[in-house]
Design a protein around this nucleic acid. Structure first.
Lengths: 195, 195
DNA sequence: CCTACCGATCGGTAGG
DNA sequence: CCTACCGATCGGTAGG
């Protein structure tokens, strides 16, 4: 791992736990065992790091979604696959996911607009699947915006409690979660594995 | 409204949109049309404001939950009432809710521990309801922790998109959301009102 | 990668 | 509520 990658990784962890604004370059340097000034031979600025972390995650979410998007399967199954893909990206990088979800607001223009656009397109992909499912009668709700917001909300809180050493692996979480959301608490038969 | 309450309100809005750490006392003073130093005749410190906002919301959530907790109704109905109560608190103070949910980490000890404890007890209340529903066969899931985390997750993202001027009022959102979560996307018959 | 340092800005205070 | 200011700390740079 290059020094730059090390810096990004340690910064991701600090940005997530303390927040971007409350993390100082001296905190970061201390954690790496070097002086604050030395960071700047590897990175351009503090925000430079944040940009890389945010777009690395944005790219990962988009790439995972694109593998699902055009499959010739019912909307409910496609939605399940998209949820699983989303959960997998989240659980494989819980710290970067936390930064992606909570610290993007500290990006400055024009990067901020580019980021917001990517995010909006991603959510639109989910809405398309739900619209498809409404159109062909699989889903009986009417408001795809509301559904997608609720869906992504429950997924996007995952990073706050997911522990890699926990009893469920990412695929089990993805299964359980998509079943819970599609079938509802009253009808879900699935059980937490190894509980 | 007292000057202190005005300060808290404007600070809540700034803390939510920029984050606690990235909001300066000079930003806050500017918004109020006074000098930064003048703030300190009304408040003790920057964190003093954060504490009031966080505990005001914590108290509101706990109070709303307690009105539901001991009702003699089935667990699924009690859960629905608790969800509705939670949504009502969230939507009535979306900015303070955002601060409560995202900025509490900037509290310092011993306030931080006290806050975390309150929050844990609140979530435990939800888990109790779900356990009750599992025990009497209403819910067929096995892991109340997972269910409650998923439930609160989808509720706690509400503040990021809820607009008081939107087409659904808080009670309609509460209804729709609790139905969606209990019955699932595949079985929910409810429609967004005025859509 | 370090030393030494910069201009700016931070939360907060004294005195009126 | 303002003026005037404090010590500390911030992100970042020059020169080696």
């Amino acid at each position: 791992m290059s020094r730059k990658e090390q810096i990004d990784q340690v910064a991701t962890s600090l940005f997530r736990s303390r927040g971007f604004a409350a993390t100082t370059m001296r905190d970061l340097a201390l954690e790496l065992g070097i002086e604050a000034g030395s960071l700047y031979s590897h990175i351009k600025s503090k925000e430079d790091i944040l940009q890389r972390v945010c777009f690395k995650m944005a790219d990962a979410f988009v790439a995972a979604f694109e593998q699902v998007q055009n499959k010739a399967v019912p909307a409910s199954e496609k939605l399940q696959l998209a949820v699983a893909a989303h959960v997998r990206v989240l659980t494989q990088n819980p710290e970067a996911a936390g930064v992606f979800l909570n610290e993007w607001k500290h990006l400055s223009e024009p990067t901020l607009s580019k980021f917001s656009q990517m995010r909006h397109r991603y959510e639109e992909g989910f809405r398309e699947i739900v619209r498809e499912g409404i159109a062909n009668g699989e889903f009986r709700v009417t408001d795809e915006k509301f559904v997608v917001l609720t869906l992504l909300s429950s997924l996007n809180w995952l990073h706050t409690w997911y522990k890699p050493e926990g009893k469920m692996n990412p695929d089990q979480i993805a299964d359980y979660l998509s079943n819970l959301l599609l079938n509802g608490l009253l009808n879900t038969e699935l059980h937490a594995q190894n509980a």
